[in-house]
Amino acid sequence: MAKQPEKKKDEVETTGHSWDGIEEYNNPLPRWWVWIFYATIIWGVGYTIAYPAWPGINQATSGLLNWSTRENVADEIESFSERNAPKNTELEEVELASFVEEETDSELYSYARSSGAALYQTWCAQCHGSGAAGGVGYPNLQDDDWLWGGTIEDIHTTIRVGVRNPETDEDYERVSEMPAFGADELLGEEEIEQVVNYVMSMSGEPRDASLVEAGEEVYLDNCASCHGDDGEGDTFQGAPNLADAIWLYGGDYETIRETVWNSRYGNMPQWQDRLSDAQMRALAIYVHQLGGGE
């Protein structure tokens, strides 16, 4: 600024300090300022008494208020569980099929869906992937191809008893086994080569077209009882559809040959001992609406 304030230069005292001739003005702080400073000290001491603060050998002092983040979380989880209990009861009593048609905008449905999404990430994502896209040997849950059926009830049963994982006589609903045609010498190498070419021809191009006709005969004799005359599969016994574009283990010649030779025995844990029925129902509803539910 053009004009420096001339004021106070004569009035303001110096502190009396002088460093190489440089002196320091004493512009005193307001008195209440220092009170605030004392107040913060008192507050700070009080705080360390009231809250966990001083470190000890095993743990810090717990403070007079006994405040703890872990307890807060535990309380919060408990309060959410309590609030969710009526919804879970409702979910256990509802007819699952009713969600397919008109009930999809109900509050219960949206509760089941978000609860199922969280459960899915905890229990299912390890094999089926966080985006439910599956992997080799682990079915993709977003597509419209279902080994054991794609209605909400079917999915619920699969989650409940698992796949090829029976523990009591009652949960054999998802058990089946394909013979190891090569390893157990049920078919010769030549017949297997023929039938693999036939299977490939159902959904695309065979490797050797000349073997397809012979392969059809082998197929009808050995495979059609489970996979169907046209390769349409059978969800009752978990026999995959061989005529569609989806391959659980791979659709190239080598992989199909290995499947026929050694068979496959993919399995999934059963969840009825670990999850509540409401949780399994929520999971079934969530998986059903991923894009391929029937």
Binding site: G131, A133, N140, D143, D144, D145, D244, A245, I246
Partner: peptide
Amino acid sequence: PVRNPTYVTMSDGSIRNT
């Protein structure tokens, strides 16, 4: 666009994005 997975193959061979 959903990137996990980027696409899904449907049983009729069509490709679907979410």
